[in-house]
Amino acid sequence: MAEQNDDNIGAKIPTVISDELHIVYRVHGAKTGKGSATAALSRILKRGEERGVRKVHAVRGVSFVAYRGEAIGLIGSNGSGKSTLLRAIAGLLPAEKGKVFTDGQPSLLGVNAALMNDLTGERNIILGGLAMGMSREQVKERYQDIVDFSGINEKGDFITLPMRTYSSGMAARLRFSIAAAKDHDVLMIDEALATGDRKFQKRSEERIRELRKEAGTVFLVSHNNKSIRDTCNRVLWLERGELRMDGPTDEVLKEYEKFTGK
């Protein structure tokens, strides 16, 4: 991966281009914070900007180009727009202004929303796999790997029980195992991977490294500077939705640590 880049720097192939990207969330009924019916009514009657809608400008004009073979860390304090930026790159959040160009379909590592607590782990694996766009055959093929990787069945036959009966750690392990079962071109990983016990954390870190090798470009959101240093060669630092710094990991992290007062 590294050699490839060194050999022909001139032929760097862009995989993700973000051009002056703006993302705005619209929150209904949060304008005044008063939830009473009369307040809502007066909002409706008062024409003007947009009625009863508060706008949250989460990403403000971010531009960058990511190349094949790069592993890019996204850092910044809470609420700085990291996860939002990832979703926009994945094409899941519509852009208010600006554009994101991508090579193929970037995918977000995460499948939580597709799973249902009332269903057995078994059915959730199938549902989650299909939701991520795997074919039925692929799901069948990977099924046993997913179960083994999650380690759910280490303490008895839990996979045939509804997910709501799992402990939070077990559920998190199963979710990660399903999400990590698919290979991706452009892979985006949102933090909170440090779930489960120590043993499972190690196993999942390993799996992420594998996924990175297979993927063309990897984005990683994390608050853990060590894991960024371990996995990324370039870092984007977001603050209040703006790109504050973009560069090699060491440089950016040094500034970031100064900023956060470490």
Partner: peptide, 27 residues
């Protein structure tokens, strides 16, 4: 991690034939 760091530096420093293209043209 060491090797990738070096690449990171190279990425920002190297002149590229794509220099000067707008995002849309590059895409």
């Amino acid at each position: 991690s060491e090797t990738t760091h070096d690449v990171g530096v190279a990425v920002t420093a190297a002149p590229s034939p794509d220099e000067g293209l707008t995002a849309t043209q590059l895409a």
